[in-house]
Design a protein around this nucleic acid. Sequence first.
RNA 1: GUGGGCGUAGCUCAAUGGCAGAGCACUUGACUGUGGAUCAAGUGGUUGCGGGUUCAACCCCCGUCGCCCACCCCA
Length: 425
Amino acid sequence: MKNTIPPVKGTRDFYPEQMAVRTWLYETVRLVSESFGYQEWEAPLLETLDLYAAKSGEELVKKQSYVFTDRGGDEITLRPELTPSLARMIARKQNELAFPLRWWSFGPFWRYEKMQKGRAREFFQWNIDLLGVDSPEADAELVAVAAAFLKRVGLDPARARILVNNRRFMDAEFAALGIPPEQRGDVSGLVDRRDKMEPAAWETYARELGLSTKQMDGLQTLLADADGWRRSDELSRLFTALDALGASEYVRFDPNIVRGLLYYTGTVFEAFDVSGSVRRAILGGGRYDNLLADVGGEPVAAVGFAMGDVVVGIILQELGLVPALPVNPSAVLVTVFSPDLLPASLKLAAHLRSAGLNVTCYPEPAKLQKQFKFADRMGMKAALVVGPDEAAAGKVTVKNLKDGTQETIASGQALEAVKKILERH
RNA sequence: GUGGGCGUAGCUCAAUGGCAGAGCACUUGACUGUGGAUCAAGUGGUUGCGGGUUCAACCCCCGUCGCCCACCCCA
């Protein structure tokens, strides 16, 4: 094909096959969210740039956001994430809402970034948040929701793992190492980058930040300590709750998880596919208790996570965990024998539809061979023929496409015959 | 932005300087009222684009565009 206009870079075309997968993911997310009592909601896809300026992080706002000036002169952005919208909407109705709030959402987001595996510029994201509760048990609920999703799609604990840490815990540990508060952000960045850099380069970077040999050693020990969580009351309560929720088989403490977004205040977590080809997080989240106050509301405790559709989509496809999904809603084809019999076919199709069946009528007369081939390609289960012989006798031929049998019966019996074929699927 | 890989039929890919091919898909027929299987024939190409080297370029060289992978960031 020549000169077709290509899609916008980083967007994906959803042909019916891909749309079926996206819908399936949406429905799975709905099922899991609702099983914990969360309500679906949605924010605008357009927000003011100001909304993100406060807390989302330089990279996200300045480099990755799609921003344009509208006709009124306002700076508008295609939302790059949902949490600031959530904070904004809650701040505006704070006294009318029934806390604790459990909300979930699944919608499109845009980030302008270099294309690579597991990333798109237009993607869909599941967001789920619990607001108004400040406790490790609330954090545990969100981790349990994440675990329930992984289980639901067939990613067992051997394949997927949720790694958990706590920023307050890390802050205390950094303090114990004599790292001053103003330096802790950089050190967090250092930790975040550890498994992405060569050990030697990482150490050089650490020295450039001004860490002493003693602090370096302490940091290495901290990051290698799988039992460090025992020193944190918050983390201890979190793991106790996860045990009770039956989610602990998915969860591990990992002091290397710090996360890039600025607004996290306590628990942070990310889920990974253990052995797959994508080394990116499937989902990530944590506690963000200050965000509501930062956008002008009364302080509200909050915890939540987000999952993009791209990484989890790749992993599930690679592992064959996406079920066979029906692409064609109609399993019945009414063929059209000839121009003069077109009305008879249309009438038959309408009759079957009025009885509640999904019915496709071939749109024009054509060779039956072509029409049956079409029925086969569309995965139909039954095909009906109204030819001259049938029409003259007030009959219809009903063919079962699965076993190849067919019968010619009175028109009035067609509905029952088709239903019988569909039942046997 | 930096480094690497790849651009050939609708799709997946061959052809390593000498006639641009195969499989799948599509169309037609074997079957003048019936799909999936089989067989036969057929349609389909500015080899991403522009230049250069050569008797001769899909192939070598230069440039350019696009895609993929890695780095940064993140779902």
